[in-house]
Design a protein around this nucleic acid. Sequence first.
DNA 1: GTCTATATCCGGATAGAC
DNA 2: GTCTATCCGGATATAGAC
Lengths: 216, 216
Amino acid sequence: MTNRKYKPGKIRERNSENILAAAEQEFVLHGFKGTSMQAVADRAGVAKANIHYYFKNKDNLYLALLENIIANWNEVLADMSEESDPADVLSRFIRTKIRLSYTHPNASKIFAMEIIQGAPYLKSHISQAMRQWVKDKSTIIQSWIDQGKIRAIDPTHLIFLIWSATQHYADFDTQVLEVTNKRQYEEDDIEHIGDFLEDIILAGCGLKPPPKVNLP
Amino acid sequence: MTNRKYKPGKIRERNSENILAAAEQEFVLHGFKGTSMQAVADRAGVAKANIHYYFKNKDNLYLALLENIIANWNEVLADMSEESDPADVLSRFIRTKIRLSYTHPNASKIFAMEIIQGAPYLKSHISQAMRQWVKDKSTIIQSWIDQGKIRAIDPTHLIFLIWSATQHYADFDTQVLEVTNKRQYEEDDIEHIGDFLEDIILAGCGLKPPPKVNLP
DNA sequence: GTCTATATCCGGATAGAC
DNA sequence: GTCTATCCGGATATAGAC
């Protein structure tokens, strides 16, 4: 029954968030088709019919999750420009994405599975908003190359490289943790991974001092 | 009915391969739970009951696919040693994996989804065979560092970097192709991606001539 | 070896009492 | 807003004729 004494809108909000959190877990573990509304309901602690009350159907529930995920990523690199310092921008790009993988691993995984399966729900978003985003950022990186600020490398593939290298730690955490024999990531690991990727990618772009190695 | 005149064993083999190929497609498109035996049967052009005759149940069919996939990867880097030339080994590693992503994208995708969902069927393989593989290769890379052949970087994370950067083009091909506005990869694309990744990663390891960039 | 038919169960979705 | 009961389609798996 509705507890009218305590802010009516808050109940809806709290239930809605519980359901979304439960759905996130289930979709990661079993995929879209493999997730049952019953399992989501059990995990969220509500009756199955209530999920339909809040989200109409399974598609809508899934889409609500995807929208949350995309919204979170729109802040990344919002402020980069042709005048920016490349080393600074790339460093922040890498570290922001690594931190997102650490704080929102499930979001990254759901997005990954959606793309791997052919992006049935996100294809239009990718070919529009995301393509434009990559185009904009690539243009700025190209301008850095033209200014001699960084080495001549393909800007689009540089973006793909940073995406893949950082998301790997969220999407494949099971593999990374098993191989490195850890139970979960610690703050130190995140720091170390950020250092490693910044070091090797900035060096790859010619943004680090010359290496101390005997070249052939 | 069995056509006894023409090599009885071959029929079993051909059907088995058809079913595996069809299952690969379906598992990629819909995930493990989302794939129906009926859909696999239709795609393979056999009756549903025959799949159970050949593979007993859905789990076995999936496991047969996973074993094929893993067997394919065991050739990679089989011959690297402490005496090898790092630039040569890393270059071949990168290009072999890119080519595998090009020739067997579905294998990569099924493996990726399995890991993302927590590796329910492969966890033991990862914590045993795969962990040992990474340990062995990391030891060799570390010896290169000790010999001054390459810059001091974390060997394990270098392996993760190459894995993630190369597999990205198979697993996220939908995203890559939509963003770059192509319908499918061409030979030239594979060449270009190989060049890009070899260039930036070898430079990151200090295996390329000093960059022509104004350092701060 | 291959097919049809069927047993058995579980999924999403909704009706309707409270 | 929340719950129980239920509809109905579709899933895995198997039995048994051919």
